[in-house]
Design a protein around this nucleic acid. Structure first.
Lengths: 226, 226
DNA sequence: ACAAAAGTGTTTAGATTACACCCATGA
DNA sequence: TCATGGGTGTAATCTAAACACTTTTGT
């Protein structure tokens, strides 16, 4: 303890890159900062790590406060520690990213925080190094989607293969051949075909699928070639 | 500033997983902790983040103090922030991993720190969560080696394809077919064949290669299938 | 000449890609 | 019946893997 006391202490924050999927686009939850400096500028949702919690717990707490959701996918992105990254004080920030189903989140809570879902193709300028946090989080999402089938986190319980492909096209910002994508996904043996069809998009209708029991989090083989 | 003051501050440390390659084994630099608690127990090399430096800079500082090396490969692994991870005080630690050429490091400095190179197949118990830090760092190294040719960081300037294969076998803890490995590496078009041979291992001798100019850090395609 | 390590070639199996084609259905 | 998306099949290409084979050189 004595030996530690010669060293400085720092504020430690977590900032969350909260990602969802809606209208064939990946969206990011942002809010206009409510205090100076940079009041009114767009910011990720964040907060400070308290004495009795780990950073993981702090991130989960912030996620629950702002979206009402618990036990959702949440992972570290990187730490950001430039001494002057926040002009007001020395704050070391640990960036996290979360994948949530927009259809499940608590709209009231989001409104209370003054937060908005913004398409990642139309992002405004963000404060501090939050742009970098987002970019690193997107790379992490692409890596995750390349190895595990992340329909479960971003899509509703039931989804069609077309919806899954559109999701992957949004994540990777490129198109996939419909036939080949379908075959690849089915060959992974993690999807269960349901009896119902989604008839909202075509006359013929597309069968719904869902992730098989037990395959929720299990990683599978490589899906998308870099 | 006022708004920040209601939040606690914490000690922030960096711990470095310093990896090298020698005698066909990956080695980790460890030292016996010199103060209580856990005095004498094996620990990664670490230190506290000061007011005027980023965590990256702190890690580079510690690396220079302990090995004498500068401008070497150094990357974040993860943050560790369980409130009681250090029984003495709340310390949030940012883990880094470094790849160094053992043939270049300053043996005096290492001795002064009481540090030793330990083969990763014979690691002792480490304090706190340092074992986890090492394991995550090893995964990161495997990912890096799978995408970029990391001979440059761990091997001498010149190396034979056999030496490179032995390095990859140490990193991935499995064997590679000599013929296929050679063909794969050469097909990447990042190696330059030199005129000299290494004659220490065989009568015939094996040609030395080196990484082509400009390919130092550039990532290439996938090398090792998971 | 031969042992031993360095390096090359060949064959097979599987995955990826592009793209043509068939199917089901409501208007 | 036909337009429209949903879904299947196939051939060409590329890659990984297994393994047999040739080369070089000191003794």
């Amino acid at each position: 303890m004595e030996l530690y006391k010669i060293h400085p202490q720092h504020y430690v924050a977590v900032d969350c890159v909260i990602l969802g999927y809606q209208d064939e686009e990946i969206k990011l939850l942002l809010y206009p900062r409510s205090f100076e400096p940079y009041k009114g500028k767009w910011s990720l949702l964040g907060g400070f790590v308290q004495d009795n919690e780990s950073a993981d717990e702090a991130a989960a707490r912030i996620l629950k406060q702002t979206t009402g959701l618990e036990q959702i996918f949440l992972e570290q992105v990187a730490s950001f520690s430039e001494p002057d990254r926040d002009p007001e004080a020395r704050v070391i920030s640990l960036a996290y990213y979360a994948l949530i189903r927009i259809d499940l989140h608590d709209e009231e809570k989001v409104k209370d925080n003054g937060a908005y879902w913004v398409s990642i193709s139309k992002l405004p300028n963000l404060i501090f190094d939050h742009q970098q946090m987002f970019e690193k989080a997107l790379v992490k999402l692409q890596q995750k989607a390349g190895y595990s089938l992340c329909g479960h986190e971003l899509l509703p319980e039931r989804f069609t293969l077309i919806q899954l492909r559109k999701l992957y096209e949004a994540i990777f910002r490129r198109e996939f051949d419909p036939g080949n994508f379908r075959k690849k996904m089915l060959s992974l043996d993690v999807l269960e075909k349901l009896k119902e069809k989604d008839v909202s998009e075509s006359r013929k209708g597309a069968f719904y699928y869902r992730v098989k029991e037990g395959w929720d989090e299990k990683d599978s083989e490589r899906i998308v070639k870099l």
